[in-house]
Structures are given as C-alpha cells and as structure tokens.
Computed example of a mutant assay.
Amino acid sequence: MSMFKVFDISGSAVSAQSQRLNVVASNLANADSVAGPDGQAYKARQVVFQTMLMGASGSAAGADPGNPVDGSAGVRVSTITEDQTPGRKVHQPGHPAADAEGYVTFSNVNAVEEMVNMISASRSYQNNIEVMNTAKTLLQKTLQLGQG
C-alpha cells in the first residue's frame, strides 16, 4: 500500500464524520421542535456508513479485483435514515399544535444520545486529521533523508 493512500483513507473518514456532525447538529437544533416542514414532528436522523473500496486512483473504482492488495478500504455515508420512534407527547391543551385530546407531539430526538454521538464523531474526525498529519510528517522526514 502506498503511503499516499493513507491520505485517501483518512480523507474519506473525515468527509464521512463531517456529514455525521452535520446530521447531529440538525438533530440537536430540532430537539424541542413541534412540527417540521411537512407539518409532522421532526424525526431524528442517523448516518449509515459503508465501506468503500478505493482503487489505485483513490476513487471507488479502479481497484484490480484480482489483486486484493491493490485496493484499500475507505468509508462513505451510504444513507441517512429517519428514526421511526414515536415522539414524546406532552399534555398542553392550549398549544396551537395540540391534537383533539390536548397532546402536543414533540420530536423524537434524544439530546443526551446526540451529544454522545457528536463527541464520538468529533473525536473520530480529530483522530483522522492526526493520522494525516503524522503521515505528512513521515513523508517530510523521508524527503529530508534524501537531502542529507
């Protein structure tokens, strides 16, 4: 595996974790919302990752299927799903969004779970940046050896 593939692999992870952070931010922003754009309560979204085979060119295509050492694996976001758990209901008969029984349905976002998700994504993002910085330092030291 080429040293430069480290940048492709870590770069794909940084991109995926960035999307995950955006989804978490959206969930947290809508944690106490009552109605979304479609008139229904906001449903929490979750990112689903998928392994992506990266070929010699650093893209998902181009790996030699007969040579498994040629291809390396990265990660990408395959889908963003909606959590179908029912939202919490609060009895507020005077609220404009209350149903016939006086209950208001809020989003199903669990703020504590989303904060844990955010910390996990943030640390993964930082770790992959650190991997790229370490690879860059190793490449610079290799070039310095050639100059001496």
Results as ranks from 00 to 15, higher is better:
Gln92Val: 12
Asn108Phe: 03
Gly71His: 00
Ala135Trp: 03
Ile129Ala: 14
Ser72Asn: 05
Asn127Pro: 03
Thr137Ala: 09
Lys136Glu: 03
Tyr42Arg: 01
Gly62Thr: 00
Ser59Ala: 15
Ser57Gln: 15
Leu53Asp: 13
Lys141Val: 14
Gln40Leu: 15
Val34His: 00
Val131Glu: 04
Val48Thr: 11
Lys89Glu: 02
Pro68Phe: 01
Lys43Ala: 11
Lys136Phe: 07
Ala100Val: 05
Lys136Val: 05
Ala31Gln: 03
Phe49Ser: 07
Ala63Val: 04
Gln50Asn: 07
Val109Tyr: 00
Asn128Cys: 12
Phe106Arg: 00
Met118Val: 06
Ala31His: 01
Glu130Ser: 13
Gln144Thr: 14
Arg88Pro: 02
Ala44Gln: 14
Thr51Ala: 15
Ala44Ser: 14
Ser107Phe: 01
Pro68Ser: 01
Thr142Gly: 15
Met132Cys: 10
Val47Ala: 04
Thr134Ala: 15
Ser122Gly: 13
Arg45Lys: 15
His95Met: 08
Thr105Met: 08
Asp32Lys: 10
Gly62Tyr: 00
Asp64Gln: 05
Asn117Pro: 01
Gln40Trp: 07
Thr85Trp: 03
Leu53Phe: 13
Lys141Ala: 14
Gln140Asp: 12
Gly87Phe: 06
Ala63Asp: 05
Ala41Lys: 04
Ser120Leu: 12
Gln144Leu: 11
Thr79Ala: 13
Thr134Trp: 08
Pro65His: 02
Gln46Trp: 04
Glu130Trp: 00
Gly62Pro: 02
Lys136Ile: 04
Glu130His: 09
Ser57Met: 14
Gly36Thr: 03
Lys141Gly: 15
Val34Gly: 02
Gly94Asp: 14
Val104Met: 01
Gln126Asn: 08
Ile119Asn: 07
Asp32Pro: 02
Thr134Arg: 09
Asn117Tyr: 01
Arg123Asp: 01
Ala135Thr: 05
Ala121Tyr: 12
Ser33Tyr: 07
Asn117His: 09
Gln144Asp: 15
Asn128Arg: 10
His91Tyr: 15
Asn110Trp: 07
Glu82Gln: 14
Ala63His: 08
Arg88Glu: 06
Met132Phe: 08
Ala56Lys: 11
Gly74Tyr: 00
Gly71Pro: 00
Val48Arg: 14
Gln84Met: 15
Asp83Ala: 05
Met54Arg: 07
Arg76Ile: 05
Ala100Tyr: 05
Gly36Ile: 04
Leu139His: 09
Ala111Asp: 10
Ser59Phe: 11
Gly74His: 00
Ile80Thr: 03
Gln40Tyr: 14
Pro37Tyr: 09
Met132Gly: 06
Asp32Thr: 11
Val116Gln: 03
Glu114Asp: 02
Pro37Glu: 13
Gln144Val: 14
Val109Phe: 01
Lys141Ser: 15
Asn133Trp: 10
Leu139Trp: 06
Ser72Lys: 07
Asp70Ile: 05
Thr137Glu: 08
Ser59Asp: 11
Ala135Val: 06
Asp64Arg: 11
Asn117Ala: 10
His91Ala: 11
Val34Leu: 02
Ile80Pro: 03
Met54Thr: 08
Val48Ile: 15
Gly66Lys: 04
Ala35Tyr: 07
Glu101Asp: 06
Ala31Phe: 02
Pro96Val: 09
Gln144Met: 13
Pro96Leu: 05
Ala100Leu: 10
Gly87Thr: 08
Ser57Tyr: 09
Met132Gln: 10
Ala63Trp: 10
Asp38Ser: 11
Gln126Trp: 01
Gln84Asp: 14
Val90Ser: 12
Tyr103Gly: 04
Phe49Pro: 12
Phe49Met: 11
Met132Asn: 08
Ala111Arg: 09
Glu113Gly: 06
